[in-house]
């Protein structure tokens, strides 16, 4: 048993940390995240989910968390989302536990471990995003290699170049082709990936 007030008083939380605990930023879940992770500590039972939405330039444009944990864990997750939002995936991965703690205006030493979970969750969500993207890229290559003759003809007789791949949309460039061709490619891709992937054709 943690015996009441005295113990909680011991965690001399900073006012910034308490603000993030009382008013967590970016809490919740995204309806259709580009990357999601669920992490937890079996030992103390803390757990967290992290959703990210990533634009075509690998930038985190939206991020949401849910946390089961103490005030320190909730504040650390909130701080992490603030630090990661707007950054590229590579930049976000360089965020350290120390930065989270500094952002919160310090944290009692015995609570440092609370910030570790957020970092793990971020790595997990980015990993999930990349895995999904790789999967779309793999299927896209297969689709492009095995295009029906008519579709290939519509696209000027050549395989379109891949401009950008994202878990939910791909951008291609070809000398010919229209919205119908893009739609056909999208359907073929959906058949492989198992969910809607939007295809944009640039000329």
């Amino acid at each position: 048993m943690t015996e009441g007030c005295s113990e909680t008083d011991m965690w001399k939380y900073s006012s910034t940390l308490m603000d993030h605990f009382m008013n967590p930023r970016n809490s919740g879940q995204l309806p259709d995240p580009d990357g999601r992770s669920e992490v937890g500590s079996d030992q103390c039972g803390d757990a967290m989910t992290l959703d990210i939405q990533v634009d075509d330039r690998d930038r985190i444009v939206d991020i949401r968390f849910m946390t089961f944990g103490c005030a320190g864990a909730i504040a650390a997750a909130s701080a992490l989302t603030e630090l990661a939002r707007g950054r590229t995936l590579e930049e976000a991965l360089t965020i350290t536990n120390d930065q989270i703690i500094e952002y919160l205006g310090g944290m009692p030493e015995e609570k440092y471990h609370c910030s570790v979970m957020g970092h793990e969750a971020l790595e997990g969500a980015i990993g999930d995003f990349r895995k999904k993207r790789e999967r779309v890229r793999r299927h896209l290559e297969q689709v492009l290699e095995n295009m029906p003759a008519q579709l290939k003809e519509d696209l000027g007789g050549e395989v379109p170049a891949v401009v950008n791949v994202h878990p939910s949309r791909v951008t291609l460039r070809s000398s010919a082709g229209d919205g119908d061709a893009a739609e056909s490619l999208g359907r073929l891709l959906e058949g492989k990936v198992g969910r809607r992937v939007e295809v944009t054709l640039l000329r």
Partner: peptide
Amino acid sequence: SSGSACSTGES
């Protein structure tokens, strides 16, 4: 009081 103490990470 609570039923656990999340203080050291090994709590």
